[in-house]
Write a protein that binds this DNA or RNA. Sequence first.
RNA 1: GGAACGAUGGCAGAGCGGCCAAAUGCAUCCGCCUUGAAAGCGGAAGGGUUCACGCCCCGGGGGUUCAAAUCCCUCUCGUUCCGCCA
Length: 430
Amino acid sequence: MLDVRLIRTDFEGVRAALTRRADPTILEQLDHASSLDGRLREIIAERDGARRKVNEFSKTVGRLRTAGDTAAAQAAMATSREFGETERGLTAEHDEVSEALRQVLLRIPNLAHPDVPDGTGEGDNPLVKGPVNMPDAFADHQRVPHWETATALGILDNERAAKISGSMFTMQRGLGATLARALCQLALDNNADAFEEIRPPTLVTTATLTATGQLPKFADDAFAIERDDLWLIPTAEVPLTSLYAGEILDEAALPALLMAHTSCFRREAGSAGRDTRGMLRTHEFDKVEILAVALPEQAPALLAEMTARAERTIASLGLPYRIIEICTGDLGQSHHRSFDIEVFAPGTDCWLEVSSVSWFSDYQARRADIRFRRRGKSGTEIAHTLNGSALAVPRVWAAIIENFRQPDASVTIPDVLVPYMRGATSIAPR
RNA sequence: GGAACGAUGGCAGAGCGGCCAAAUGCAUCCGCCUUGAAAGCGGAAGGGUUCACGCCCCGGGGGUUCAAAUCCCUCUCGUUCCGCCA
């Protein structure tokens, strides 16, 4: 959520920045927020004046009582009560306007970083690197969708996954399951030099899911356990970001670098029937997430570093990949700047987004109330947050199966994964 | 699931309904002393909002009252005991 004070003090600047998002309705919301804020401030001034009177007369009552002047005390009580009535009315009005303002503010997206390229949508996302490892041409044996190859190899059993849990669930078997776990292990090991490994809960409270912005707007996308008022996390970003929610951190503790391997659960509402085959879109998948809580001045370098880390893992697997930057028209609601890594899957003949690394500036931390204190300075500042997928299993798994499929229908395991595969160098037909 | 108790500033820990944004200790910061440090002495210092006055914040929410950290209700969390159980 944006800082209302910024809207107040630099309305034109905020307006100009939001114009770049190429969505006129955002500007209407901004105007609305600004007028609500103006009204709210008037109400607050009046209400606080009334409160001041109540406080003053209440103290007078105390003094008169101790002095023994009962009659005067009674009079002061009556006056105070009158101001109390006024205060009550103003408070009701305040709460109403304040809530309306909050609702509008929650819908206004983050300001894009000045360096983010302008654009109106996905098609305007510029390529910033690659394609890397891209062969001139793919052989016929690579032009087979991973679900066909994997099912034939006996390492993917989506039919039985559907029997157990319904559609859009997957199940890996044998070396396929090992491969999925190996990918997570690789990603964790690649980042353990700097990131603290966390094993967070995967069921979280409504408050937690709201702090990162999934609620209330994206309630339909998350699985809920209504009976216990808990939600299944769509990404480890949720518990990791909330780790320090409501806390005031010491400057010296930043950046706090965290990573976690968790299952991720997504209802994928609205995408029924899309990508239903294979592993491109599933209700449950594994992912290793890296996250940083940082000082504002540390954030740009961290964005670059975290993107580089995600890239390094993909590159080490030998997969064809490219990096694109997200333009203003495609930037996520809470994102300040984002980079996506995509790998090419020759069997399904498309680029797959396997990682997205984003800088949220203070937009997310303001909502989650993550602050820090600078040494020797009084007061607090809102921290900056960044996160990204170090590795998301299903699409990388699929890309490995398709890219490294051999003429004999076996799949060669990338060298870096062999130590995690109990020495297996390929997955061969039985 | 049942019962009892608890939740106050970075930590610990006081707090008769009014003189409480809140004692005290530790930690922190500044100064004095010292060659330097420790000790000692003196001082500063919670958060939010506001140009400021002020207003708000004692786990969250609600209530009683002229006035709530203090009384009542409720929720959450914690500790201990009982029950149940991987």
